[in-house]
Structures are given as structure tokens and as C-alpha cells.
Design a protein around this nucleic acid. Structure first.
Lengths: 125, 125
DNA sequence: ATACTGTTATAATATAAATATAACAGTAAG
DNA sequence: CTTACTGTTATATTTATATTATAACAGTAT
């Protein structure tokens, strides 16, 4: 698995790891039940503290993407299609929220946004 | 000008001020060449440090929205708001394209996206 | 002179992210 | 059982950023 992190990103490292692993799971680069790198190994590879990896794993586990077992390792959870769809809907929601913020600040009307949607989705929206 | 800030927002106060002033400029509530509240006055109104207001003004000036003159005050820059609006529309278009890509890959219907829009814009869309 | 403007410098506080270190606990293989 | 991996937990520290308090300095207008 290829994870690239940036020190001077405004996105915290633990969150960058989360996103990279989610993406690997979505793209099936990490398959069901497959073992993830151990917290210490990944920390060594990325030259960061294992606690930062731990935090990323903890949040991924809370969200249901992976499962940690003491003494054995951390594994990709059996795929839950609904969970993945929820995640994608959340991504879309984040984008819509960004659009909302921009429209409010820039005084752009909903009508104008609708037109863009029609153009890109090539359908009545 | 009505600015409301929140202490426990994850958005820094200086950024909340930035956004509120941008919005006021785009909505023409603050007109070209119009004077903004002085750093100390706005700070007193919002019950925050004038340095926080100063920071917001500094960033707005760097972005070309306002212009500060020592001894006189801070003023809305004469600027082509339409030009900035075009840039913002382009940003929105990029986000919609991302949404389009996700929806195609994840088999998410336009109806579901419409629902999210209604939810966030809190209006029929 | 005064009373406003913005500007700058310094130090302090608060919070979150990330770290270093150490110890503890479960699993599997020799 | 010992060894060498796993994950877990606790404590203290460092780092970066946002925010503040305070003081002084500088330009403008009346």
C-alpha cells in the first residue's frame, strides 16, 4: 500500500492516513479481511509516531472500515456496501456544503448553480 | 454591517470575519470605497482582540478585497466583483464535476443528490 | 493638541496535533 | 516457556496555530 503524507498540509497526518486507507479499501487495493501494516511498521515507514497511526486506525475502526485484534493485527472489515455508499454520500455532502459556502459568500444564486448541474449532468436537475 | 462570530466553531475567528466581510462586499452591503469599521471598533463590538480583526483585514487586503491606509482607515477596494464571481462559479463547477464522478462510480442517483441539496440549501432545489 | 485611524513588537495563554518513552497484554511459532 | 511479533494504555513533552493583553509607534484630520 502506498501512503504519502505531507507535513505542512493543513490536514492532520492521522486524517491523511485515514483517507489513504479508505481509498485503498474503496479501490479494492486492500481486500476484505486483509491485514493492514502494523501500527509500528507503518509509523516507521512514514517516519512518524506509532501513536499517530494508532489514532488513524482507531477512527477507521470506529467508522467500521477496519477491525483491530490485540496480538494479531488490524484487518479490513468485511465489506459493507451500505457503509461504503454512506461514505460516498458523505463526500458528496461535503462538496455540496462547500458549494453552499461559496454561494453564500459570493452571492451566487441557486438558479445559477442549478444551471451548472444541468450542464454537467446533462439532464433536468 | 452585521457580523456574528462563534467561539467554539472550528473555523478560526479571523476567518469568520473574512467570510462575513467578503459576503458583505459581494452583496453590495459594503460598496466600493466604503470605509470598514476600524480594527478597534470592530474588536470592541465582537468582544475580541483588535489583533484578530487586524489579521482578518490583512488577509482580505492580500486577496485584494480591501485596502488599509494608515491614519485614515480601511476601505473596500475598487474591484471587479463580477470577475471574482466568475472565479467562484468555476470553483463550484469543479465541485459539481467531482460530485458527478463520484455518483457515476458509486451508483448514486440524481434523486439522492437532489435530496442532499435540499437538505443543505433548505429549500426546494 | 486631540482623537481618531492603522502598525508593530513582545509576551502570554489555550488548544490540538504529534511526539517520545515506557510498560502492559494478547497471539503464534519455535 | 521463550521469543517476536501484534495492539493498548498512560504520562509527559513538544510543536504549531489561534488568540489575547499590553504598550508603543505612526499617519490623518479637525
Amino acid at each position: 500500500m502506498n501512503i504519502i503524507i505531507s507535513n505542512n498540509s493543513s490536514v492532520p497526518i492521522f486524517e491523511q492516513i485515514e483517507n489513504a486507507i479508505k481509498q485503498a479499501i474503496f479501490s479494492n487495493e486492500l481486500k476484505e479481511e486483509e491485514m493492514l501494516p502494523s501500527v509500528r511498521n507503518l509509523a516507521n515507514d512514514l517516519k512518524i509516531s506509532f501513536l499517530t497511526v494508532k489514532r488513524a486506525y482507531d477512527e477507521l475502526e470506529k467508522a467500521g472500515f477496519i477491525k483491530s485484534v490485540q496480538g494479531k493485527g488490524t484487518f479490513v472489515a468485511p465489506k459493507n456496501i451500505e457503509l461504503i455508499k454512506e461514505e460516498k454520500l458523505k463526500e458528496i455532502q461535503d462538496y455540496i456544503e462547500k458549494i453552499y459556502d461559496i454561494s453564500k459568500i459570493s452571492n451566487i444564486s441557486e438558479k445559477e448553480i442549478k444551471e451548472l448541474f444541468k450542464m454537467i449532468f446533462e439532464e433536468d436537475f
